[in-house]
Structure formats: C-alpha cells, structure tokens
Design a binder for these strands. Sequence first.
DNA 1: GCCATGACAGGAG
DNA 2: GCTCCTGCCATGG
Length: 94
Amino acid sequence: MDEETVERVREVVAAIPPGQTLSYGEVAARAGLRSPRLVGRILAEDGHDLPWHRVLRADGTCAPHIAAEQSARLRAEGVLLVGGRLPAERRRRG
DNA sequence: GCCATGACAGGAG
DNA sequence: GCTCCTGCCATGG
C-alpha cells in the first residue's frame, strides 16, 4: 500500500462536505484507485480520523457492520436514510 | 505460492 | 427485489 495512495483517498474522503455523500467507487476514481475495495481497506485501517460515514456503497446502502453508526452520523448532519438506504439526490456524482 | 476474506461494483439469471 | 460470479488490490494462514 503506497502512502501516496492512502493520502489520496484520505483527501478525497476528507473533502466530502457535510450532508453530502460519495460512493466507494467515486472515491476510488478520484483517488486514482483501480478498485473500490482499496477504499474500504484504507478507510478500515487509516480512515478512523476521516468522515468515513459520508462514504456509502453504489446503491446508497451501507455495510451491515457500520450501518448503525453510518445512519446515526449522517442523521446528525441532517441526512436521513430511507429504508436503510440514502436517497439518490443526496449522492454526489462529482 | 495458493486460497480465503474484506467498509465494493457491475452484470446476469 | 435477491443471489451468484467476476474483477480488483492487499493481508494472513
């Protein structure tokens, strides 16, 4: 894992404005990664200081492990998850 | 070196 | 709507 790659992802995630969200794929694309899974790995290891809760899956849903935290943090920013997923209008395309 | 797993994505059935 | 398969990269047994 290149530190530069990690920094890229960290910057992209940190650049997500409150109330907005990005998909793992979008973050990966912005960070220059060839796989969104790397985003998940990086966030899991070095994303504890980042607003990782603003990163969701392509469907607008979130992983079961973090679903509770995800929804709670987003709700604190004024984002409501409907049916366990985020409305498409809240998702930033870039 | 091979296989399995993970905060994923897209396509097919 | 859900499940299964494949591609992607890194890590651990």
